[in-house]
Nucleic acid binder design. Structure first.
Lengths: 146, 146
DNA sequence: TGCAGATATTTTATACTTGAAATATATTCT
DNA sequence: AGAATATATTTCAAGTATAAAATATCTGCA
């Protein structure tokens, strides 16, 4: 005799929000204290680290699933810090290619190491099997995505 | 021969972020289109709906786990829409009690019904057993919380 | 009583986020 | 070529979010 499905689903959703918020709060603070940075900036650096040739603004916002205007601001700040650079795309004067500077790459490497450690702590309660279970379940959440 | 634990944990985290973002994007848009409202506002109304006598600003921000200043702004807008009201707490002139207006209660009831339906859709892939599994796993995520 | 410290809330500065409008450049079609 | 349309990006307005400073009030204690 379990509760009705819709309520159960709602409960899962609320629990997920809570877990996420808690972990994110920790990450945000750690990033601020250790690197004087933020999660959105980390996300941008992370995407650019994976694509060393750089990405266009629109590719960047597509990868991160945030709006174009949003990326404009974050990249602007990262450029101000000397961590990324914007170069003209030849053949299309509308477009901008963004990529890590050497400093940015170095910086990101440090941040990524720390980041992985923090997540490892936050999810330390789970063993390999449980993590696999989680992945499988989470992959089916929302819709038809990777 | 599975991948190292820290990487696996990172993968779970990233997958969780993705799922959450996707669902939230849908919710946000639905709330905007159907109710000309937002998720943060919904969250505040939801908390006040559970505590019909009202909550103080600080109780509200504690429940929602957002900063005090943040709640100030959201409540201000909700008050402007006539959905909540702020009343002085007698015995403590520093404090403010916030509660739903009748209009706010009505409005929230509609929103809550729709909200539950949206979540039900987003998590429609899961049956009762899987939802229980998810709850149990998510409850262990982060730290020592409910 | 009166003041030192604690508490409740708002204000401020800064950043992030979106959706929509604006700008600039490309492309397509006749 | 020139106009209409499409694409890439930025700008804008509004809202959300935090941390820290400022206000206002309360409490406990000398």
């Amino acid at each position: 005799m379990s509760r009705p499905l819709p309520k159960q689903r709602l409960r899962v959703w609320l629990r997920m929000l809570a877990a996420q918020r808690e972990i994110e709060t920790g990450l945000r603070e750690a990033l601020r204290l250790k690197f004087d940075s933020t999660l959105p900036r980390f996300d941008v650096l992370s995407a650019l680290d994976r694509y060393r040739d750089g990405l266009r603004m629109s590719e960047l916002s597509a990868k991160l699933k945030v709006s174009n205007g949003n990326v404009t601001g974050i990249v602007e700040r990262l450029a101000g810090e000397g961590l990324v650079e914007r170069v003209a795309v030849d053949g299309d004067r509308r477009a901008m290619q963004v990529r890590l500077t050497p400093t940015g790459a170095e910086r990101f490497a440090e941040m990524a190491t720390a980041h992985e450690g923090w997540i490892d702590e936050q999810l330390s309660a789970f063993d390999s099997d449980e993590l696999e279970q989680l992945i499988r379940l989470l992959e089916r959440m929302g819709g038809e995505n990777a």
